[in-house]
Amino acid sequence: MTRIGMNPARNRVSDYRPARVTIAVLIYLPHLTGYFENRLDVVRLSLESLFFNTYEPYDLLVFDNASCEEVKLLLHRLHAEGKIRYLLSSSENIGKLGALRLIAGAAPGELIAYSDDDTFFYPGWLEAHIDIYDHFPGVGMVSGSPERTLFDHGIQSNIDRGLLDPDFKLHYGQRIPMEWEQEWASALGKDMETYLKMVASLDDIQLEYRGKSAFATACHNQFLIPKSVLLEHLRGEWSGYLMGGLNEVDEAINASGYLRLTTLDRTTKLIGNVVSPDLASEARQYGIRIGTRYWKRAEDSKLGLLQRIARQGIIRWLLQGLYNRLFWVLSGQSGEWVQPEGTETDLKD
């Protein structure tokens, strides 16, 4: 006989019920050098702001897309402390879309609040998202960080609803403050002057429904979505690319007639790959303290000889190729290293 006794779990009832919302965070830090040198601080700030500023019940699912040991240690500690309910790890980076597929399948909640690992969450962010979701009919996505360039795709269903349904109204203007645009540009590493000049010529659009308004767009870096909608729009073949393909998902959700909205107040914020002194200070206002290391700006010092050499054409080309190749090798990826058509390899500076 190889079974002795009876499994103690037999005939017992689990008191576990999934929360309505599964918050899902996707983390990918293959190492802590180069672009990722300060990213562990970013992840810690993002998770701490989530823990501090989320008041609605939720289950937290973290998908670790083959991160380095330091990140694994952090995540296992948070899991052991009960702060992460579900920790799903992949032995290889399966790309953002691949990870989203697994997240969508695994999340037990009716709603999934997805986020990249570089989002700062303001107090009450989740309530604000749910408020929009519950108020508007036919919502596909709700995001928390309004930004004017996001109106460039995936908004036709919002516009159609505003034009065709008498219960809806559209409002055009420039309600998004320039300060938010500046912070967005900084978090994305954009050239500030060019960026601000560009957004100064753009309108933002609000959609109003029965006394409540939202911006008529959403952002695929951070969004609340019904699980069924996410599953419906992630069908098809694996692309294999580590990033990209999200605009297509936005468009598909839009084409299905779902609304894609953003809270009027900024309830989340993109951090970037460095915690700026301003954001660290802002976080402290909410009681969140993390150790931060800031970039020393090289404007303060003269370029060294090696750095000047590195900026010469052929040297730069060789080093950029080596840099990209090393990223692939050090990340432990098994696939072919292929340069997708139409993308730039330049390290933008």
Binding site: Y241, L242, F327, S334, G335, W337, P340
Partner: peptide, 9 residues
Amino acid sequence: PAKFTEEQS
């Protein structure tokens, strides 16, 4: 860097 590269087999 993940933006610029890499196809998975």
